[in-house]
Amino acid sequence: MMESQQPVKPGLMRRFLLATSEIFSKKWPRLFFLAVTFQSAICIAFEAYTFGRFQGGLADMNQPNWISNLAVQAELKTIPTFLCLFLLGFLYELVLVWDALQAKNTIQIIGLCIANVALLIYTAIQIEQIREAIGNLSGAGAFTDGGVWRDVRPVLICVPCILAAITIAMSLIAWRLYQEFAWDILKYIGADYRMKKRFLYYQVYIALLKFDFFFFIGFTVQFLVVVTGKSDIEIGLTAAAIPVTIGILFFAAYFTRHEIKLGMISIMVLYLGGLSYFIFKLARIYDPYHAQDYMPVRKSLTAFTVLTILLIILTIINGLICMFNFGKGLKQHLQTSHRQDADKDTVSYSLNDVKQTPLPSRMTID
């Protein structure tokens, strides 16, 4: 008798390809992903052109008089920092879009539309900040080409316009996705209104954690690269906070999914610490004794700080609601749906990839 073989669990790449093919097999998920991809490609290209034009118009900045000028050095880092943030922002948004579509998470999709509005505001702010940076550097004699601002201004104006158009398209498609994915929530959670509400708060909380990560990283990059007047201790602590924050967000999701109350309480304490830190930083940006250090990225850093504070407050509120929902049955639904997804991937892998041996066309006698 032949022993039944256990189905082989697909690897990460196989599961990624299966999820991606499922996204592209349906109209509205495909359109949503392509819209964000188009936006990312165009906006990154425009930002890259701005960076190239900016760098190409500069004089030789390796001269000792430029190197020793801290104000000029801070202004020089403005546009590279913006480009870095846009690369991070658009690529991270693409990852979140893929994640939301494969998980059929309508809450995260709505969050992505809101995040696109935040990026739109940021791109509008950068126009004035880049104009100021180019103006200050021109006044200091750092440019050999006086037409840099004239060339990059139309490109910079196009970026928020593109973001506005794509945000509208994303919002319209998100409504269709909401209708399309509604059945999946019903399938996993059932028709119980209270359970669906608990699941909604859980989805909101997990989505907030993902957006918290980006805005914290965005703030940290600007602070470490552009802001002057930092002590070595402050730089070290800020840099060390990046892996710590990733760990906090990971465990926040883990504790919520597995309903570990003590872990959630410790996470809440850390949230309050983070909230205090960003409130302190916001006050320091406008402190007369330190305002000059933040001047090159004052507006954008303010935007990131305010958004991060709002996100942390929302995260704390949703985290508390999720914690109060512990022990009310959601954990079983989450773990069941997770196992079903894994089983579905395994079955699709085994059925598609197992080669069938042809049956003999006639009986044979040995």
Rank of each mutant, 00 (worst) to 15 (best):
242 I>N: 08
179 Q>K: 13
334 L>Y: 10
216 F>A: 04
333 H>M: 09
253 A>D: 07
251 F>D: 00
359 L>G: 00
285 I>K: 02
281 K>H: 09
192 D>E: 13
345 D>K: 02
235 I>E: 10
352 N>G: 14
242 I>V: 14
23 I>K: 06
303 A>M: 07
287 D>A: 11
277 Y>F: 08
122 Y>K: 10
44 I>L: 15
97 V>Y: 00
222 Q>K: 04
161 C>Y: 11
63 Q>K: 14
82 F>W: 11
278 F>C: 10
15 R>Q: 09
180 E>N: 02
276 S>M: 08
50 T>G: 10
177 L>C: 02
90 F>I: 04
175 W>T: 02
36 V>W: 05
248 I>T: 09
254 Y>P: 00
149 W>K: 05
282 L>P: 14
87 L>A: 12
57 G>K: 01
160 P>A: 11
244 V>K: 08
109 I>T: 14
51 F>M: 08
141 G>F: 15
300 S>D: 06
325 N>W: 01
206 I>Q: 15
275 L>Y: 10
356 Q>N: 09
334 L>T: 07
282 L>N: 13
82 F>N: 08
279 I>N: 13
122 Y>P: 00
65 N>P: 00
192 D>M: 06
85 L>D: 08
116 N>S: 08
199 F>M: 04
135 G>E: 02
360 P>D: 03
334 L>G: 05
319 G>T: 09
223 F>C: 00
117 V>N: 03
28 W>S: 05
193 Y>K: 14
311 L>V: 12
278 F>S: 02
151 D>W: 00
132 E>R: 11
193 Y>N: 04
